[in-house]
């Protein structure tokens, strides 16, 4: 089983991201489960969402405490929450940032990748410029960095899951897939 934790701020699309990822992996024939942290969401506040992936039906029904990988939709969260809590050795930390992965002071047992999802989302006019919706871009980067899901399945999942601008979102996913920077 692969377990993924997505950190975001309310309104950035962390919950939708966890679902789109699940739908994409499901399209490739695997079992999936995705859910928000069982909490109250407020715009701007730190939120979490989770995705589980397995070759067999998934029976476990609790939150994820020891993820294989984490996704961070907002780099300022690194100062607010411990995004590495419980993260397994060798796990990916994918951060929405224009900076190089080496600039982040994170333990060497993890792999770090960055993508400027913010600029990509603004370029494709996803959400307001002051608070762009970065979830579809960052998933493209996640797919490339981890190899967990193929770009085509992901693009299809994005197209059918986002409420607005499906083609712009798919373009953002593709651009991020092709421009992620890994340590």
């Amino acid at each position: 089983m692969i377990e993924i934790r997505i950190h975001g701020r309310g309104g950035q699309g962390a919950v939708i991201a966890s679902k789109v990822l699940a739908v994409a992996v499901f399209k490739e024939g695997k079992y999936v489960q995705s859910f928000p942290a069982f909490g109250v969401e407020r715009r701007g506040a730190p939120v979490m969402a989770f995705t589980r992936i397995d070759d067999q039906p998934i029976r476990i029904r609790c939150q994820i405490y020891e993820p294989d990988h984490v996704v961070v939709l907002d780099p300022t969260l690194l100062e607010a929450v411990d995004v590495t809590a419980g993260l397994k050795e060798g796990g990916w930390i994918l951060i929405n940032s224009e900076q190089d992965p080496a600039t982040f002071d994170l333990p060497a047992r993890y792999r770090v990748a960055t993508i400027d999802a913010q600029s990509i989302a603004i370029k494709y006019k996803l959400g307001p410029k002051s608070a762009p919706i970065v979830n579809t871009a960052i998933l493209g980067a996640f797919a490339k960095a981890t190899g967990i899901v193929g770009l085509e399945a992901l693009a299809e999942a994005v197209r059918e899951s986002v409420p607005l601008k499906p083609e712009e979102n798919v373009a953002a996913t593709r651009e991020a897939y092709n421009s992620v920077v890994a340590s």
Partner: peptide, 11 residues
């Protein structure tokens, strides 16, 4: 169950 099923996505 609230959230554990109501908001959980699965096939």
């Amino acid at each position: 169950d609230a959230f554990v099923l109501s908001h959980t996505q699965e096939p």
